[in-house]
Design a protein around this nucleic acid. Structure first.
Length: 261
DNA sequence: ATGGTTGAGGGTCAA
């Protein structure tokens, strides 16, 4: 089974690229973040024509996540147990969606598409919300550790200094602070394994400003965390850097992971 | 410190 995660930065402005990406790599399950669309605004026609089902949550021009699967979507749930909110309640819940993709007896996996809060600035209340969100996720996700499960998405955290193009430039910024890194590590410490880095080094996000992609000045913030049983099935992973190139790209590249069936 | 770009929506706000 081939799964992928991609912050698409508006699925409506990017639907042609999403469909081409699915075709190009024969992806079975794609988790997307920042759909920036209400559920009834999702452009699903081309996806359905390709045999994909869609489960999504989204209420405004911000946030919004979805799962796009051609191997089934069962037990869909929005958010996670104890997920904290920010602002409008309906909008706040649009950062996480989970479903079982594929029959469990045939290698199906519970996949959660996650859009971790950005944090904005270390002295911003949104930063505290981000830390709280990650702590609650760690607690809620423990229930899935014994299953075939994956936590995938835009984590908005650079776990190491090498995951930033210029750590000095991030001295007073989010994504690299010890507390954020500790929150991420705490999830790994419960038993989740980050499975992409070993196969796919390099950045996954490049700001639109200043030709950051052309100069490869990016961040590594999109990750796939696997439960022990799924981690043991990982065959490989890659970052589709070509998807970040050219006019009309998202600021994130997709990350693809292959699992033994 | 500031600015640079993109998307949604129709103000600016968020990233």
């Amino acid at each position: 089974m081939r799964i992928a995660t991609w912050n698409v930065n508006s699925i409506r402005s990017r639907i042609d690229r999403v469909e081409a990406f699915l075709d190009r790599h024969e992806v079975d399950v794609l988790a997307v973040q920042e759909t920036k669309a209400k559920v009834d605004q999702l452009p699903t026609m081309g996806l359905e024509a390709r045999g994909y089902d869609v489960a999504a949550v989204g209420h405004s021009q911000w946030n919004g996540v979805a799962l796009i699967s051609r191997v089934g979507l069962e037990q869909v749930s929005v958010g996670f147990d104890g997920m904290p909110g920010w602002g409008d309640a309906a909008d706040a819940e649009a950062r996480a969606i989970s479903a079982v993709c594929g029959p469990p007896e045939q290698g199906g996996v519970r996949i959660s598409s996650l859009y971790v809060p950005n944090g904005r600035k270390p002295d911003d209340p949104h930063y505290v919300y981000k830390l709280d969100w990650l702590a609650r996720l760690r607690e809620a996700a423990q229930a899935w550790l014994g299953e075939d499960a994956a936590l995938v998405g835009d984590w908005n955290i650079c776990p190491t200094d090498d995951d930033v193009f210029d750590i000095a430039q991030f001295r007073n910024s989010t994504h690299v602070t010890p507390r954020e890194r500790a929150a991420f590590q705490a999830i790994l410490d419960t038993g989740w394994a980050e499975v992409t880095r070993a196969y796919a080094p390099g950045y996954t996000y490049w700001d639109y400003y200043r030709q950051r992609f052309e100069r490869d000045r990016g961040l590594k913030i999109d990750f796939v965390l696997a439960s022990p049983s799924v981690a043991a099935r990982v065959k490989g992973a890659f970052i589709d850097r070509a998807e970040r190139a050219g006019v009309g790209a998202s600021d994130h590249a997709p990350v693809v992971v292959d699992l033994e069936d």
